[in-house]
Simulated assay, not measured.
Amino acid sequence: MNIEKAIVVCLAFTLFACKAIPVENKDTKTPKNVILLISDGTGLSQISSAYYFKDSSPNYSRFKNIGLIKTSSSKQDVTDSAAGATAFASGIKTYNGAIGVADDKTDAENIVEIVSRKNIKTGLVATSSITHATPASFYAHAVSRGLTEDIAADLVTSEVDFFAGGGLKFFKDRKDGKKLLDALNQKQFSIYTNGLNEFSQIQSDKKVGYLLSDDAMPTIEKGRGDFLSKATAQAIQFLDKDKAGFFLMSEGSQIDWGGHSNNASYLISELIDFDDAIGQALDYAEKDGNTLVIVTSDHETGGFTLSAKKKINSEGKEYSDYTEIGPTFSTGGHSATLIPVFAYGPGSEEFNGVYENNLIFEKILQVTKWNK
């Protein structure tokens, strides 16, 4: 073979290889499943606390793709959980207190409604009531987050396949007398109120709902145990049983409440619990290879800071001991700080950069192709 022919052959081989590579990458970057983990009220300082107070290595360290979101709602610089979660669930900016509705109070289609039409299974887990602002935004439409009974009724008519959290009283002891537990049974839900079952006990169920407390679940410090991790793992197992693809939202709800009460031990214990749930999602995603895991928050709460501990010296003067952390707070409400986004799996690189919170929704639909 002369030199000219050899060059032509090499060029042809190179062009063929270049054309083949993008096709392969395109396939591997389309996730079949999405797990969205939301740590309510969590900013960078809350996340940082895991690195100082958790006994084992935080699961946050397992992410390579990290971005930041701007969280302001449509009318307020400082968002609340309802507007923040609606941005994630429906891809719109709306007013504080809105559950799945736009500024003009018309219903905004959410991701559960979109993907259910494609036979993709959906699930929600929370340590709050399942009717609380964040989980509610993924299935309900209400002009105010305070319309809890209306929100509970929306769960009955939604296409959710699995849910776990508190809020039994909103389905059972209602002012309007409606028996929503019976209505859930009629929608093929098996409802459990005494604790999480083994997967073998629910495997043949059509749909599953856990309502394990009258309102919110107990705190970690008051004995909730590993509910969030176990419910997240079981939701994954249940939603994946027919291999049709799934979307799961799992929330560490009470990190926010620790911030509101300026209670550092409450906040940190809930954050560490949430980090354990991240581990469950990542363990599954690593084995599966077709699952996108996104971890973020709706907003920061408390103006939480990992400051040096204040102490008094022998002369009675206050000083900062830089060898010990003494968490502090600047507010009992929310703040407008940018919020980290962590992503792992196919399409995770799309979540890098700085962008508005409602683009989480757009990016999920884009990388999964669920919008087509």
Rank of each mutant, 00 (worst) to 15 (best):
T94Q: 07
S73W: 05
A216Y: 06
Q234L: 04
V295N: 05
D161C: 03
T291H: 01
A244T: 10
T86Q: 03
G165P: 02
V101N: 02
I66P: 06
T328F: 07
F88T: 02
S116A: 13
I69C: 08
T28R: 11
K317V: 01
N290S: 13
I47F: 05
K369N: 12
I294N: 02
S144D: 12
S73G: 09
I268G: 04
D298F: 05
A233W: 00
N313A: 13
E270F: 04
A126P: 08
S261K: 08
Q234K: 04
A244V: 08
D77R: 15
A153C: 08
N65C: 10
I220F: 10
A336N: 15
W257V: 00
A277S: 03
Q46F: 11
G225W: 05
T131V: 08
A50G: 08
A108P: 01
L271N: 07
K369E: 05
G123N: 06
G67N: 04
V160I: 12
A126S: 14
T219G: 13
T219D: 15
G245R: 00
K169H: 07
P218S: 14
Y51M: 11
S49R: 03
D242Q: 06
D107V: 11
L124V: 02
N185L: 14
F238T: 00
K93P: 04
P346C: 07
T157N: 13
G289H: 08
K75Q: 12
D176M: 11
L68M: 13
V34P: 00
K105A: 10
I7H: 13
